[in-house]
Design a protein around this nucleic acid. Sequence first.
RNA 1: GGCGCGUUGGUCAAUCGGUUAAGACGCUUCCCUUUCACGGAAGAAUGACGGGUUCGAUUCCCGUACGCGCUACCA
Length: 508
Amino acid sequence: MSNKIRVRFAPSPTGGLHLGGVRTVLYNYLFARRHHGEFILRIEDTDQSRFVPGAEEYILDCLRWCGLMPDESALTGGPYGPYRQSERKEMYRGYAEKLVAAGHAYYAFDTPAELEEMRQRYRTAENPSPQYDHRLRGAMKNSLTLGEKETARLIGEGIPHVIRISMPADQILRFTDLVRGEVEFNTGTVDDKVLLKQDGMPTYHLAVVVDDYLMKITHAFRGEEWLPSAPVHLLLWDYLGWKDSMPQWAHLPLILKPDGNGKLSKRDGDRLGFPVFAMNWTDPKTGELTTGFRERGFLPEAFVNMLALLGWNDGTGKEIFSLDELVNAFSLDRVHKGGARFDFEKAKWFNHEWIKAATPERLLPDVKAALQQEGIDTNDDEYTKQVIVLVKDRCTFTTDFATQAGFFYRAPEQPDMQAAAGKWSPEKTGFFRELADSLPPAAGDAAAVEQVFKELAAKHGLKVGELQLPFRLMLVGGKFGPAVFEIAALLGAAETGRRISRGLQALA
RNA sequence: GGCGCGUUGGUCAAUCGGUUAAGACGCUUCCCUUUCACGGAAGAAUGACGGGUUCGAUUCCCGUACGCGCUACCA
């Protein structure tokens, strides 16, 4: 099948995987699944200086956690490999030279110092950043100004050079963007982008076109920051003779920082106290650790759900979507054009909703991990699942289970004396002594505990309401947690009794 | 500076010319609950501004302002 839909996510392995990156993955994934197509992960590691070891594996780990695994990648292989551009290096030069031969590109020998000098020399108030373009290339050191013989000589001598595209001086280019509609550019405003670098590696511009062609990509989604270079890509598709195979483009809106201006960066997360990366990322050079959504206590279902709604909605007002539901509902024409500010409060809400709706079985591994963090080892999964049912409504993060459920495993050190202050009086001691001895033996029967509690309260001439808080403090330690009788029932008669005597000692 | 894209409440946003301009988050108040939550109810927008087109514009067009992006041998 030659018209099968194929999309790709093409990150550079330069560090942690950003929110916006995951959303781009998600939209690719949803589109592919929706149309029964294929989703490819291609690693764009053409910049040797920015390469960070481990980043590629990390990206894959993030995708795995999110449940957005590609159909083809360097990991799984596939019919269009290799999937790392560094391993495809030899393929690009030929295409660049073909462009030179056709007069659409040229060799340029300018050194970095010479380029800098050009920028200085032509810099004016009206034009603060002069470009290497149709107006200036005649004044630079390239095959256009040097002539054929001299160019051949320099290349023969192995003089370092790049290949630049020759952007037409004044040509209107149009294309239809899947989210923006008709977009128009004048080629004269774009500089002669480097296509092939001095080290023989392609730049993004050449690589993306060649690889999208070779990998038979039908739809290409990327961030809005790429829109200005679209004319370069359009021209390349044309010059290389592949116009009919050009993918349909969709430039996605940016995710903006919650305050101030600009796109969201990892710095904003550090500054405002929320994660920006999908998972923990440790910079191998500096050793600096950046917290991820996973470690912060997010469920991948919630993370993905939240991301999907940041720039898209189905028009019905529905907000909670499973991945499968997203696959069915997703469409590019409902993707927003404007950037969206990231709101961590809303992200928390999504997570809370997913935790509330999750089954104890789903939550079990995360809860055990959270308790483990607090040094609590759980061995009775059935017990833990009952605990989960009782406390999950009050957990926003999976990590919250540590504080919300810890007392089910560990008796409180000391009841919150401050909270007890107004609610405790010595004459209640007798009631609690008797309660400790009268607890119903059957575990899990909250109603029975409540009944005994109330009967005893009446017998002692005390108000039930006045006794509940002290009871809670003995069992939990503080003013939080589910209904006391539920807690006592789950703890069991023996443990509840022990906590009562301990509490009595502390309060006396 | 140039080029491009964008602009509905603090935030995410519905509306594809005609509604009292949805809904959600957050916030405030109240109810429920003698814990903390959950749940329920209520409150808060002169649709950036100015021109058009139209019987009628938040919706279409133009301009202005503002915001963002790009302007690297980084992606």
